[in-house]
Design a protein around this nucleic acid. Structure first.
Length: 794
DNA sequence: GAGTTTGAAACT
DNA sequence: CAGTTTCAAACTC
């Protein structure tokens, strides 16, 4: 089954997806399922075969979800238990997103390796019958949802489960996902406006068709209109079918094409039968699932024009897994406190420079679409919620930290946490009923890593690369600052597949919307700087309260030490780090631990940064694509995409981008006096020198190691061994006095030999013999002492 | 650490 | 598209 059927892909606007980068992505389902070993062919170093994201709106489910998380998952599964109502879902690939219709049922079906409070993740993905939605780990996928609605509460009550309170108002959903490269995708719920009733409910109060925006990353997804039942349930979703939900975004007065969100999800309420082959999306490519039962459908949802986001010109979400199949996980969406049945989803998405941003907002609490999120019980609700997503070969562990509602954006700091945290800020001041009054600090309960608290006004979603999954051990957090400790993994930049005009145009207005663009490699940076605060739409433009956490050491460990792929800090002074001169910017990263001056490459200057990105893309649509292409057969095929233009360095210095990349110049280079070619003697000399230097280093290292070992051994030898019956003699007997006496004996023999005028050879022999006698005496004395000592138990 | 060199990026 | 300027990294001292 294809998450996106070929037909649909054909229908999909080019803007939405650039498949170029994913052409070579293998489609085999085996890869997708072989989650553990699955290697993503993309440039991203970090394979993220699967990720499981489960969001449970009900607090009561927390316990259940924890148990579920323990199972190893081969595929990433996102299970969402909507509370009482199954909600819309987006799934594009093999990773399964399970939406659980009922609170009570949700837990039983899902199995997750990582405990996530209120969320369930089925590792096996399609393999597991219970999984209903597939999300391709490789693909960038965004899943949205949420909704805390009164209905959900009602349902919860009906089940005897304490109703979960979800703060609907002003909640903004920010979702960050990490692609295989580990590039985070940030989804942020645009602020619908402090007055939800105005914008979102202004239209139709009766029935708001829940709007789903599905973002398929890395693959073309087809959009088909799908009818969503106005009731809080989407019946189609329950059907075992892959459905693509397209939400044409209606942007009032916007000339730009409507933003289209494509949500493909596999609906398999009964779970996938083992026979049903599921082809996961790998590396951004959507693979088709052959399951006959599954059918792809597209749901088109009318979007409310209320939100300011809708006005955003950038209507199209282009997410391309250029380097890495990124996974977009949709985290719960806080809905504005609208009482109207209208359900609007504003999903401003922008992809910038390897960054993917998805903003989703649902205005109504009663919206039929509900994110299946296991909610922790009211008692158990904890401000910090972590969602572990375990997949074979890797999973993402996500921690969501609901924060106390505060109108202003503030950074969330989790010292020691390497997770990428995204803060969700409620647009409104309304407080969640079920939400504990816990302030920003929230602790994750042990063994309850995954929690998406719908009621939480603010949420932080740390995303851990799949590789780190195994190492991630959700631990109880004593404080909000420490959520999870994981080993760092490399994360790759997610590049916009196509810097399309639409997308670019979208950047222009984006700042006004209030969404935040997070650098693709932000996760890595997060590891360096644990906390990232994203400004909510309401708070945007970012206030001074938002501060980059750069230069904050993690647990006393410098960021550079914590990162597996240390990045050189930039030293920009004039470019404001908003030009390609800046490596950070060029790599799609925020400046972090840099030495730059007047840096705008941070969250505080989103507007400027977006403009700069747009400018760069206007100038060169491939500005943010990697310069060094990756050959099929390894480095031999690697070459600079543009070639160098060196004139004086002979292409044998790091000035030359080819040389710096350790590749030889190619025919496309325009260099003068190039010496960076295969047969170049200079190059060979340099190589030899480099090799020699490396050998020296290795030898030195080995020598140090050996010396250390010898010293250690010597110390061990010198340690008096008396207690045991071993043959070692006490070293302490060779004292200074003993040495002096020995030397005197030897000198005495030498004098005798000299006096007797013995030949030198004889003299040496006599001296050596005397030395032997001395040694024998020492050994004898030592042995005797040993015995004596042993006799007295010394 | 300051100054120079270098070539990509930006600009005209 | 070519020439020039700007910029920050690489390099030298």
């Amino acid at each position: 089954m294809d998450v996106v059927s070929p037909e649909l892909n054909s229908l999909l606007p080019d803007e939405i997806m650039d498949t170029e980068a994913i052409e070579d992505v293998p489609h085999s389902a085996a890869q997708s399922e072989a989650s553990l070993d699955m290697v993503v062919p993309m440039e991203t170093e970090v394979p993220m075969p699967s990720e499981n994201v489960s969001v449970c709106s009900h607090a009561a489910l927390m316990e259940q979800t924890q148990t579920l998380t323990t199972a190893a998952a081969t595929d990433s599964t996102l299970s969402v238990s909507p509370g009482s109502q199954p909600s819309s879902l987006v799934s594009t690939s093999s990773p399964l997103l399970t939406i659980k219709p009922a609170l009570a049922t949700s837990m039983a079906t899902t199995k997750t390796t990582d405990s996530v409070t209120g969320t369930t993740v089925s590792p096996s993905g399609l393999q597991k019958p219970t999984t209903q939605f597939a999300i391709s780990p490789a693909n960038h996928q965004i899943i949205l949802n949420k909704v805390a609605s009164s209905q959900a509460t009602e349902a919860a009550k009906s089940v005897g489960t304490p109703p979960q309170i979800i703060k609907q108002e002003g909640q903004k959903l920010l979702v960050t996902a990490i692609g295989k490269s580990g590039q985070p995708i940030v989804l942020q719920l645009p602020h619908t406006g402090s007055k939800p009733g105005v914008s979102q409910t202004s239209g139709d109060t009766k029935l708001q068709t829940p709007q789903f925006k599905v973002l398929t990353i890395g693959g073309r997804s087809e959009l088909k209109p799908m009818v969503v039942s106005p009731g809080n349930q989407v019946t189609t979703l329950q059907a075992q079918q892959l459905k693509t939900v397209q939400i044409p975004k209606k942007t009032p007065a916007s000339s730009a094409a409507p933003i289209k969100f494509i949500i493909t999800k596999t609906v398999n309420s009964k779970g996938l039968s083992p026979q049903t082959p599921v082809t996961p999306v790998i590396q951004g490519r959507v693979l088709t699932q052959t399951s006959p039962v599954m059918t792809s459908k597209t749901i088109t949802l009318s979007e409310p024009h209320s939100s300011s986001i809708q006005t955003i010109p950038g209507k199209k979400i282009a997410i391309s897994p250029l380097k890495t199949p990124s996974k977009v996980t949709v985290v719960s969406v806080a809905s504005p406190p609208s009482n109207t049945s209208q359900k609007s989803v504003a999903l401003p998405m922008s992809v910038a420079l390897g960054q993917q941003i998805l903003a989703v907002q649902q205005s109504t609490s009663a919206s039929p679409i509900k994110v299946a999120t296991s909610q922790t019980t009211a008692q158990n609700i904890k401000p910090v919620q972590s969602v572990p997503v375990a997949g074979v070969g890797g999973s993402q562990f996500k921690t969501i930290i609901p924060l106390a509602a505060q109108p202003n954006v503030q950074q969330i700091q989790v010292p020691g946490s390497r997770f990428h945290y995204v803060r969700l800020v409620t647009a409104t001041t309304a407080s969640s009923t079920g939400q504990p009054s816990v302030s920003n600090t929230s602790s994750v309960q042990t063994g309850k890593p995954v929690v998406v608290s719908t009621g939480a006004v603010r949420m932080s979603v740390p995303v851990v690369p799949a590789q780190t999954v195994k190492q991630v051990a959700p631990k109880p957090l004593t404080s909000a600052t420490q959520v999870v400790t994981t080993t760092q993994t490399q994360q790759r930049l997610i590049m916009p597949a196509t810097p399309l005009p639409q997308i670019q145009s979208g950047f222009t207005n984006l700042p006004t919307v209030g969404y935040t663009v997070v650098p693709a490699q932000y996760v890595t940076q997060i590891q360096q700087s644990p906390f990232v605060t994203l400004a909510s739409s309401s708070s945007f433009p970012p206030s001074g309260a938002v501060q980059s956490q750069a230069k904050l050491p993690l647990n006393g460990v410098s960021a550079a030490e914590t990162t597996s792929r240390p990045r050189k800090p930039c030293n920009c002074t004039k470019s404001q780090c908003l030009k390609l001169y800046c490596d950070c910017f060029a790599n799609g990263e925020f400046c972090n631990n840099c030495n730059c001056n007047n840096c705008f490459n941070n969250l505080e200057h989103e507007t400027e940064r977006l403009k700069a990105i747009k400018t760069c893309l206007d100038r060169n649509p491939e500005a943010f694509k990697p310069k060094i292409g990756k050959g099929k057969e390894g480095e031999s095929d690697r070459r600079h995409s543009k070639g160098c233009n060196c004139k004086r360095s002979g292409c044998l210095k790091n000035y030359c981008e080819c040389y710096e990349a350790k590749i030889m110049c190619s025919s496309i280079c325009k260099c003068i006096g190039c010496k960076n070619f295969e047969e170049s003697p200079e190059r060979k000399t340099l190589m030899h020198l480099a090799d020699a230097a490396e050998v020296r280093v290795q030898q030195q290292t080995a020598a140090k190691t050996k010396l250390s070992s010898q010293i250690s051994d010597l110390l061990m030898r010198t340690t008096p061994v008396i207690s045991s019956g071993g043959g070692r003699l006490p070293y302490t007997f060779v004292t200074k006095e003993v040495l002096e006496a020995t030397c005197e004996c030897l000198l005495e023999q030498a004098k005798k030999a000299e006096q007797t005028r013995q030949p030198q050879a004889d003299a040496e022999r006599v001296i050596l013999e005397e030395f032997g006698h001395c040694l024998m005496s020492i050994i004898s004395s030592a042995g005797k002492a040993k015995v004596d000592c042993a006799s007295i138990n010394c």
